[in-house]
């Protein structure tokens, strides 16, 4: 298992380096931000000077070599826009995103587990159909649309939650709900499917046959067995939460990596874009390792292989 994990870690780091390289070149393709940071009517001399100071007029390969050299000791450069180290700019907001993602994911799994079990237990019944239909509908709503309708009704008309920003507990309701939409929809389906399969599988059946008629035990067996696909889909969805965080950041001005990255793209702040992608990528790599570890704990068979 350790060998497996370390192999995974090494290959993931290679992938991460690849990501940062791709983003470096993509970013440079958007052109020099000289006109964004210089006065209207700036002379060519001023533009050249700006590009020289920020190293934009060197050949691309030179910029790249310098970049790789810096990144090797975790220096992602200085943010042109925020005028502080890019890595600081990113790490100072990343915990906020992480917290939001953890809250949204935990609640999603909880809600999905309840709904999925309910649906599995009443397979093909009206409750099952309602839950399945509802969860699919959840996954089909554009998230920004849901968020804006939420602001209009809950904040402006009813006044029960604030429109935006991070303040007391009620300000978490809309952002978390927006982030939960898609994961709940998908996870409910996964839980339901996995539970049905687990309930029908050999050992639960045989446990029943052996007289373990106590439903509690049956469900404990089944739920443990169903945990594997749930964990992996949840892990996969957690990575997708970054997309949701961008939307939540834009609509609710929720502090976090989403707004910072969008602003960085708009402000042509390459250093922050690169640092941001690196940190997000690292987070996802660690998440995958965590998922694998959980796997090993939940399923002894994996540990052997």
């Amino acid at each position: 298992m350790l060998i497996f994990l370390s192999r995974r870690l090494v290959s993931s780091v290679i992938a991460l380096v690849g990501v940062v390289v791709v983003v470096f070149f993509l970013g440079r393709l958007t052109g020099s931000p000289a006109h964004l940071y210089l006065p209207q009517g700036a002379s060519q001399e001023m533009a050249d000077n700006f590009n020289r100071t920020h190293g934009f007029n060197d050949p691309l390969w030179q910029q790249f070599i310098r970049f790789v050299g810096d990144v090797a000791h975790l220096d992602f450069g200085t943010s042109i826009w925020q005028q502080r180290p890019a890595l600081t700019a990113v790490t100072s907001v990343f915990p906020q995103t992480l917290l939001l993602a953890v809250v949204a994911m935990t609640l999603s799994i909880a809600v999905a587990a309840v709904l999925g079990c309910l649906a599995a237990a009443r397979r093909f019944g009206p409750v099952d159909k309602l839950i399945t239909f509802g969860s699919l509908a959840c996954a089909s709503i554009p998230d920004f649309w849901f968020a804006l309708v939420g602001v209009l009704f809950l904040a402006v008309h009813l006044g029960v939650v604030p429109t935006s920003g991070q303040s007391d507990l009620s300000s978490w309701i809309l952002p978390v709900a927006t982030l939960m939409l898609a994961p709940v929809g998908v996870l409910t389906q996964v839980v339901r499917g996995a539970m049905i399969e687990a309930l029908g599988s050999g050992y639960v059946q045989s446990a029943r046959a052996r007289g373990l008629a106590h439903r509690r035990l049956v469900y404990r067996h089944a739920l443990r067995n169903a945990a594997l696909p749930i964990i992996s889909v949840a892990g996969d969805r957690a990575a997708g939460l970054v997309n949701g965080a961008v939307i939540v950041g834009t609509v609710f001005a929720w502090p976090g990596i989403g707004t910072v990255m969008v602003d960085a793209v708009l402000n042509r702040d390459f250093a922050v874009i690169q640092a941001g992608v690196f940190v997000i990528g690292l987070g996802i790599v660690l998440l995958n390792v965590l998922v694998d570890l959980t796997y090993a704990v939940a399923d002894p068979r994996v540990r052997v292989s």
Binding site: V19, L26, T30, N243, I273, I284, V285
Partner: peptide
């Protein structure tokens, strides 16, 4: 893995 690690929305935004 590379494509998967990049948040798709940000990737699309930059491209």
């Amino acid at each position: 893995d590379i494509i998967h690690t990049l948040p798709s929305l940000l990737l699309a935004l930059v491209i």
